[in-house]
Design a protein around this nucleic acid. Sequence first.
DNA 1: GTCTATATGACGATAGAC
DNA 2: GTCTATCGTCATATAGAC
Lengths: 233, 233
Amino acid sequence: MSAAAVPLDRRGRRRLETIEEVLDIAAAIMREQGVAGLAIGEIARRMGIRPPSLYVYFPSKNALYDALFARGARLVLARMEQVNAELADEQDADLQQHLVGAARGMVGWALEQPEYAQLLFWRPVPGFEPSPDAYEPAVRLVETGTGWLTGLRDRGLLRPDVSVADALRDWTVLTSGIVSQQLSNEPGGTLDAGRFTAAIPSLVAMFTAQYGAPAPTATPAPRPRRTRRADPR
Amino acid sequence: MSAAAVPLDRRGRRRLETIEEVLDIAAAIMREQGVAGLAIGEIARRMGIRPPSLYVYFPSKNALYDALFARGARLVLARMEQVNAELADEQDADLQQHLVGAARGMVGWALEQPEYAQLLFWRPVPGFEPSPDAYEPAVRLVETGTGWLTGLRDRGLLRPDVSVADALRDWTVLTSGIVSQQLSNEPGGTLDAGRFTAAIPSLVAMFTAQYGAPAPTATPAPRPRRTRRADPR
DNA sequence: GTCTATATGACGATAGAC
DNA sequence: GTCTATCGTCATATAGAC
């Protein structure tokens, strides 16, 4: 699906380097001016070339947005795969720890890279729709989320009868709600000091009450505790 | 705060009518082309005038966005005040009914008027910040939400010890998350047939479990209800 | 292959005539 | 209050220099 994996000669490598430089500068401009404020001429100005020269690498401005969308989707996918891998190592982590870790991973990424987050989560550019190629990492992100929740269910942290699709839908609503509110109402906020990022623990508690397995791991249980595993003898 | 309430002569009335016409057409263009796709020249074209003539009514494109932001904020405020008034009439409605009604009111409005919702909830226009005047109805919307949740708490539907500010913050995250996901991932969806609007009952259940009073309305209550306010003695 | 020079048409905005 | 004329900037297309 993605670009063919042909071996690159010197010219090809140089071309890829230039493309990466264009994307770096474009992302910087989006961060400063807003996603829709990206201007081809400004990229050229910062690179010391003329605007038409950029059309050698990108046939249109929307093609540039497409490459930026793909890059953002790969970045967030990589971050979430890393977060999931770290959490998978913690064999005795409870549900809250998993959920808080995942929420902080996603929301933290979005606040660190607001230019990509706006391009991915909102649709601020009139007439731009990501191509299937650019969207592909976003599809993999959904698959990663599905696998993550399925794993939590299989390990007994989620109720065994939960619909993973419904739980993932609700989870994306929670995280995208935090990101949306934080970015639009308090753009300068951070993960650890933001009016809306502060909602993460509370929202994680809601999700836990809705989808978590009834037996809590370490918190006060309504009936006399039975230490670890139920040992009725 | 808003425009002074001076009596209007014929010229003043005619001017206001023209301004309303400009806003109507601008909203239609935003709906068709996206918020950032609004073009002064297109408004003039549809009105049968030349672009510079519009500068008599709005000193800049951002001033036009400001008027549209104010209009959208007034529209959503009116809708939510109406929803709250209807719910207040239902004396014996339980918490779920209140929350579902409020969520459907807000999300339904956003899907009916996506052009205003995008302008209010996202920030798609580089360099545009709403003026305090335009923002004022949005502040009143927060006050309305605070009063709504306070009323629910005083009527015993929410736990007596909830922080209304926290609950409102979480509530806005939920609703704006639904709206964001629905508008960006499935723009054609409706309130009754949407991948993400379908999450409303589940998210309302989460919110209820977190903030609702432990005593359900129709099932045996653990202790006698105390009608109004929790006495601090 | 890579970039420049140049041109087109749309845009937001301003000045000034009527 | 509306117009014409104009400016600077934008994305984009083409032709050609090196």
